[in-house]
């Protein structure tokens, strides 16, 4: 005969086991809701400024005005979510400080994205192409190109993306080699370590990276050794940088849905483990029950 409350206990056990077997379509729906709801309901969360983001901010604050900054915008549409707010935040800072910068890319699509963001920010701050920023275009060749560029910029890049000779561009007057570049900022899904090998290691030029969050753990050894002066980690880095600049742009907007999805994944992991342990316990009890029965019949 069933004891009072035994039905409830069995139902509870079944519920706990089901927690470990949630249909993936339910998970997809939860992820979509976790992304969409914070975009509709404007929530603002406190932002902790990390050491690595501070590093990028500090180095740009101390960039001299007589040198240029080189932005390596090697990202495409797939990384737009993380690299676009990072690029925008860095360009806003450079334009505010009046530091000239040149955009380049090691993939064909990158220069288009860099140009689009630079035009948008330049319009806001009244900056002009050729005087405050320029676009060197797509430069293939990876390590070989970087080594050659460090030795002689105009030997490698004869014209900008519009076909204008570099000598005719006002901001590139007197910019000959890596010694005229105060900072190389690699903005990519996984920024090239060749900048560290052939530029920072050989000439001591400051290098900062803006990478996606998933590969950022690979950059921390370079931060620790001082080879990298700063690192923007995904959307979080962009949001922290915007906080330092006192603005609220795409980074600040996107960090909230990301936070919600991270929280959802942690909750799902906890539920999965509850279900896993409940199932394991049930199987143990079943085996014990079978053994007991076998023992009784054996008597």
């Amino acid at each position: 005969m069933a004891l009072p409350g035994e039905g409830y206990g069995i139902k509870m056990k079944e519920f706990l086991v089901k927690l470990g077997k949630i249909d993936r379509r339910v998970i997809y729906l939860l992820v979509i809701l976790a992304v969409v709801i914070p975009l509709i309901v404007k929530i603002r969360l406190p932002i902790f400024i990390s050491r690595e983001t501070n590093g990028v901010y500090t180095i740009i604050e101390h960039c001299p005005e007589d040198k240029i900054v080189l932005l390596d915008c090697t990202w495409d549409a797939g990384n737009r979510g993380e690299n676009w707010p990072q690029t925008e935040a860095v360009m806003v800072h450079l334009m505010r400080k009046g530091i000239k910068f040149a955009i380049m890319s090691r993939i064909p699509q990158g220069t288009g994205f860099g140009r689009e963001i630079a035009e948008k920010v330049a319009k806001k701050y009244g900056k002009k192409y050729g005087i405050d920023w320029c676009n060197l275009g797509y430069l293939p060749g990876e390590a070989a190109m970087i080594q050659a560029l460090a030795k002689d910029i105009k030997g490698v890049v004869k014209k900008d993306i519009k076909g204008t000779p570099l000598d005719s561009i006002p901001m590139m007057q007197g910019i000959e080699d890596i010694h005229d570049i105060s900072l190389v900022c690699g903005i990519a899904y996984w920024p090239s370590e060749d900048w560290l090998r052939f530029v920072q290691g050989v000439y001591g030029t400051n290098v900062a990276f803006c990478s996606s969050a998933i590969v950022s753990s690979a950059m921390y050894p370079f931060l620790d050794s001082g080879q990298l002066c700063g690192l923007l980690v995904g959307v979080r880095g962009a949001a922290e940088y915007e906080r330092l600049l006192g603005t609220e742009e795409l980074g600040t907007e996107l960090i909230v849905p990301q936070s919600m999805v991270h929280l959802l994944i942690v909750v799902l992991i906890v539920l999965a483990n509850i279900g896993f342990w409940a199932e394991r316990r049930e199987k143990k009890e079943e085996r014990r029950g079978i053994r007991d029965e076998g023992g009784e019949t054996g008597k």
Binding site: L30, D76, G78, G81, L264, I265, I269, L271, N273
Partner: peptide
């Protein structure tokens, strides 16, 4: 948008993979 969509599908797969794989 097409490029961003392909990459964003990863978010859904990561959530289900974390749910299925991260068992203590």
């Amino acid at each position: 948008p097409l490029g961003a969509t392909i990459f964003s599908l990863l978010a859904l797969f990561m959530a289900t993979s974390a749910y299925r794989a991260m068992r203590v």
